[in-house]
Design a binder for these strands. Structure first.
Lengths: 220, 220
DNA sequence: GATGAGATACACCATTCGGTGTATTTCTAA
DNA sequence: TTAGAAATACACCGAATGGTGTATCTCATC
């Protein structure tokens, strides 16, 4: 429960190497009554120096394509020393790799420069307080990523029999022939036979390959 | 490459059990010139029946808390038969579980009912065409999820030396003492020594446990 | 009733593995 | 300079593994 309408005006920082974009953003954001102060830098290194002495901002708008350190490295550096500062990426790039890397670096949002100014303003100032501003095209990439990661599970069944599946699980869990035999009250030689059959079906020839393959493609 | 300003007006469907909300949304959306037609249903089952006979819509706005089938099941059902239809969740729930389940079910967006009407309209009609509308608080949950999933990687470094890390990789890839020894031109006995050291550090005592643990927590 | 798949079981053998001990060299840090 | 970590190497032993062959028994399906 916060008090959105009565919150303290924000101190912002913009890191952007193109002067026109930088000044345009500063002007746009500076007009809004929710903003107290806007500082700008043209590269990450300068920002990091300044953070040592000047007051800590509430929010940093970070470009990715910068001379020297990239904005993604910038996110990592800023979040490491000031975890509570919101850092929002503002860039032209919308590839999944850069989006994911930015998020893993600790970014609190990811906006595209193609966003219309009024929506951009609302996203930055409105969304940042309670959530993470994301451009819809960026969000789309994330949803696709999440959907794909959940799918790859049941791809290959191989021709394993129920008994073989049981034993496969035990092998992955580190049991030996004898131990598995004891679990099912069968002879160790039988367990061995089963495992050799599984090896043929999975096309492997050692415990290590077996465990790796079993874990990498689903079961267990 | 689309023609956003000249695109065909959209046919929408709203699935929402509360009459006031349903009619409010219908009114709000119906006013916009980008909308051609709005149909409403109070439960998923009715929608599914209607989809068999009536024209396929462009976009479905789906509540989650519904009598009978939940909206998440509704997403699954609709996307299964009409994969190209955009289905956007509109709900009061903002827990990570429901958000992720909705996305895995195939949802193309996830908006909260607390969204201000003008922004809601813009998200639905503006964002849905080229991206996935997500409320900032929902996006925040997703970012946290992605950050966490990437973190558990480097959590445990164990005290492995560079050489041990090399050999660890080879073992996971199924090589034997001899093969690894050949790769680095060292004696098999040395490789064995290294592996036994790694066993102690990882607290395992067999190839199977070793590979499993190595894969489960990071490296390789 | 025959055929085949699945599960069971035993034998044999070479290789690999797990565990322990000892020892040398090099390099870094105290 | 000295102590310790890292990497190297060899020996020995019992246990586990991989590979192959053979042989029942059951059950379902043809």
């Amino acid at each position: 429960m916060s008090t959105p309408s009565a919150s303290r005006p924000l101190d912002l920082i913009i890191v952007e190497d193109q002067k026109e974009v930088r000044e345009g953003l500063r002007y746009l954001l500076g007009l809004d009554p929710r903003v107290n102060m806007v500082r700008t830098y043209d590269r990450v290194e300068t920002l990091l120096d300044a953070l040592d002495t000047l007051p800590t901002p509430d929010l940093v708008l970070m470009d990715i394509g910068l001379p020297g350190m990239s904005g993604i490295e910038g996110v990592r550096a800023v979040k490491k020393r000031f975890p509570s500062v919101s850092v929002i990426i503002l860039t032209v790039f919308e590839d999944t790799d850069r989006i994911l890397e930015s998020i893993r670096a600790g970014a609190n949002g990811y906006l595209l420069k193609s966003t219309k100014p009024d929506i951009l303003l609302e996203q930055i100032l409105g969304a940042a307080k309670e959530g993470s501003p994301l451009s819809p095209r960026v969000a789309k990439r994330l949803l696709e990523e999440i959907q794909e990661s959940g799918e790859q599970s049941s791809l290959s069944d191989y021709g394993l029999t129920p008994r073989e599946r049981q034993i496969l699980t035990d092998v992955v869990n580190g049991f030996t022939y004898r131990e598995i035999a004891a679990r099912y009250n069968i002879a160790a030689s039988t367990v061995k036979k089963h495992i050799l059959h599984i090896y043929q079906k999975l096309d492997v020839s050692s415990r290590a390959e077996f465990v790796r393959k079993a874990i990498r493609e689903k079961l267990v």
